[in-house]
Design a protein around this nucleic acid. Structure first.
Length: 209
DNA sequence: AAGCCGCGCAACCGCCTGACT
DNA sequence: AAGTCAGGCGGTTGCGCGGCT
């Protein structure tokens, strides 16, 4: 365990911060020749002045040949939201269902995009329904949790019935198409579909879940 | 044109867990 | 059984960049 004060931070031999191209090449070449192994010894053997953790992270999140970065598709967004509703902030678990995507990227995506919209939706909800608190009766009281992610995270939405909001009329949707595409893979979604004709999810739809 | 501000992302940190001795 | 080590994970931070004033 590394519960002791981080030695690496005290060791002047250990580099930190952004990786240089030379370091990347060293790591790539070493793994190409020797494969992945014990990361600490790999870092030493490769001559990198980095911790094993740093090497591992760099490899998994950036250098791996099969890693995909950027351009998260609407389908992937939906999948992320669905899986997050199921599992909460289990980023690595979610990432396993998105080939080529890393937990770090999904985590960043969630925090910077989705969570922002959720908070905006929450604010709108508070403004528009401030007099109707009973809506939350069948909702968990843990909505007071500081992070929306944890709110949703521990919500046992029993059968993957999480459905993405559209925030129509209140927010600019984060999907460029301005609406969520239909998501035919989830039969349960049809049970709680938006009741209006335009396939948008109103806040009522969301909260009624 | 310059400064400010917010966003997105890479990387680090601390904790947990399982394997091994 | 207890201690150590390495890997894995989620949370957080720092910085570069682009847009705005």
């Amino acid at each position: 365990m590394d519960k002791r004060p981080c030695n690496s931070s005290q060791d002047p031999e250990v580099r930190k911060g952004p990786w240089t191209m030379e370091e990347d090449l060293i790591l790539i070449n070493y793994i190409a020749n020797h494969g992945e192994g014990v990361w600490n010894s790999l870092a030493k053997a490769a001559g990198l002045k980095r911790t094993g953790k740093s090497c591992r992270l760099r490899w998994l999140n950036y250098l791996r040949p099969d890693v995909r970065r950027g351009n998260i598709t609407p389908e992937e967004q939906l999948l992320i939201m669905e899986l997050h509703a199921k599992w909460g902030n289990r980023w690595s678990k979610i990432a396993k269902h998105l080939p080529g995507r890393t937990d770090n990227e999904i985590k960043n995506f969630w925090r910077t995009r989705i969570q922002k919209h959720i908070k905006q939706a929450e604010n709108f909800q508070q403004q528009s329904t401030s007099t109707s608190d009973q809506m939350n009766d069948h909702h968990h009281h843990q909505a007071s949790t500081s992070q929306m992610s944890t709110t949703m995270a521990h919500e046992p939405i029993g059968s993957s019935t999480y459905s993405p909001p559209s925030y129509q009329g209140t927010l600019d949707p984060f999907i460029p198409t301005t609406q969520f595409p239909t998501f035919p893979t989830d039969q349960s979604a049809s049970n709680c579909c938006p009741t209006n004709d335009n396939n948008y999810w109103s806040m009522e739809d969301i909260w009624s879940l």
